[in-house]
Design a protein around this nucleic acid. Sequence first.
DNA 1: TCCAGGTTACAAAAAAGTTCGTAATTTACT
DNA 2: AGTAAATTACGAACTTTTTTGTAACCTGGA
Lengths: 125, 125
Amino acid sequence: MKDLVSRCPIEEVMQILSGRWPTLLIYYLKQGTKRFSDLRRDNPTISHRMLALELRKLEDAGIVSRTEFGGYPLRVEYDLTAAGHALVPLIDALGNWWTSVAAAADGEGRRNEISVSARAQRTSG
Amino acid sequence: MKDLVSRCPIEEVMQILSGRWPTLLIYYLKQGTKRFSDLRRDNPTISHRMLALELRKLEDAGIVSRTEFGGYPLRVEYDLTAAGHALVPLIDALGNWWTSVAAAADGEGRRNEISVSARAQRTSG
DNA sequence: TCCAGGTTACAAAAAAGTTCGTAATTTACT
DNA sequence: AGTAAATTACGAACTTTTTTGTAACCTGGA
């Protein structure tokens, strides 16, 4: 998703939030200040490089703040900015929406079984 | 973003909505019924393969419904489902959030200029 | 030599784009 | 009337682009 195809703010947000890591990092950061190594521990599947890259992206977007404390070993702290905190409920709303969609889909015996399992099958097949 | 790293609904939604196309297609579909070729015309930069793939993904997720009318040339209509329509305001909220973040960032002369231009520079460089 | 936090170069994987083929019917031309 | 090309919504194969991962290097003091 290199460039934007429109000047639409929605496309711009999605460019930032797309992918596995942004929402996950925001989720952990909303718990409070975290350091680089904390975030790696919280989420061992992200690579060192990806974490650095994603943090930088979120910082550029104004969602995360980075505070560097001099000295060695270098210490850096990450926090959500005010904008970042404002984003949290919006993301939660998406999660809730999906939860209700999945629940409803399980109820209605419909030809295309929705929910996680349906997509998992297709992906793994 | 092949597999999920958690069972978190947020990660699941993001797997569906990530990328350039899902929100864009939802945006066009909220205007009403569209056919495959309509969607291509609305958005000439998407390839027919991607369009087919994304529509299938949204259909599996229960966001889009696909109605096939027999005969040749085959005619197929796409619509947002009820769940899809419920999703629209949530996506809009993200867009509004970003708009306000960008506006605020322009105001505060801060060392990391946020907003579109900052990211555009980094991307193009 | 290790710490923490990062960057860089290179390689692997995944996603996206391109092209070709399919079907039955319609239109366009000779 | 007969042939060619367009239509429509894809699927499959192949190629290119983008993203992600791996591993190594860097800082400079204890």
